[in-house]
Design a protein around this nucleic acid. Structure first.
Ligand code: FES
Ligand code: FES
Lengths: 141, 141
DNA sequence: TCTAAACTTGACCAATTTAGTCAGGTATGT
DNA sequence: ACATACCTGACTAAATTGGTCAAGTTTAGA
């Protein structure tokens, strides 16, 4: 059960970006330097964030990225969904009536994993970028 | 963020076992057949469960495995720990003062991931095998 | 108008992890 | 003795991860 670097980077980058994007667009190069994330990798990540309308891009010199929504409306769920991070605790297809090992009914632990999945997703749904910025501003001098 | 099959199987097998182990030892072969899990794989898993004193083994004909503790004292945490499933949301070494990308301080999202880890682990600590058996008995006719 | 900064896209890859299989054992109730 | 069932370690194919690399396109500013 671990979180991928891609997701961790996505959130890191967005928190970094959110601190300045109201002043000027933030370039990936800056984020890369400040957060120590590979520029090429960031580009992959932001391409997805853009497709999911979490950020907007501004091309050309002095360009960069800007948030496309209010930080309060960007939940962890949205970010994770954008970069294809998914919480997968069950093995079976959720929609199907069939169980994991090809059985006709759900297995004896199915409900447990389902509960777990909901437990985790709840955390993601309740946490917004706004929360993270606030938290981070507090720790800055 | 996904749960490994090994962990899922471990819990499945223990729930299966717990339903009969007060009557007679349960062989892995039976569990394998009932739950559709590879016997060889189960053996790996039970070797670890035994090392962690979650089950006891009884060798020879009519042998099998039996729980080594009260189902109420076997938490998901214990099972996961036994099969080396670990929740890992931060990238850095927890004990160290250093951050992930080799920086001298913790990164801007460190606290968030730490919170997430606690959130998930809490679920594991509160859920016992007893809970699962009870739940499963209800769904049996 | 030229140029450099910055976004855009897609291919490629090494290392690790996962989810097992396989091939041998050893212990013991009947 | 022998079948049953535990025990152990080596091995591996496939998927995933965490990137790199190369070759663009767009646009602000000199
Ligand atoms: S996990 Fe859904 S049926 Fe087993
Ligand atoms: S995750 Fe701990 S410092 Fe970045």
């Amino acid at each position: 059960m671990k979180l991928s670097s891609k997701s961790r980077y996505a959130v890191m980058a967005l928190v970094d970006l959110a601190r300045f994007d109201d002043i000027y667009p933030v370039s990936l190069r800056d984020i890369s330097l400040r957060q120590g994330i590979s520029l090429d990798y960031l580009e992959q990540i932001f391409s997805k964030l853009k497709k999911n309308e979490i950020v907007k891009s501004i091309r050309g010199t002095q360009g960069g990225y800007v948030l496309n929504k209010n930080p309060n409306d960007i939940k962890l769920t949205n970010i994770f969904h954008a970069v294809d991070e998914k919480v997968k605790t069950v093995q079976c297809k959720k929609e199907s009536k069939r169980g994991c090992n090809g059985k006709a009914t759900k297995c004896i632990t199915h409900n447990l994993w389902d509960e777990l999945e909901i437990h985790i997703n709840t955390f993601f749904e309740n946490k917004s970028l706004e929360d993270l910025i606030r938290n981070n501003k507090q720790t800055r001098v």
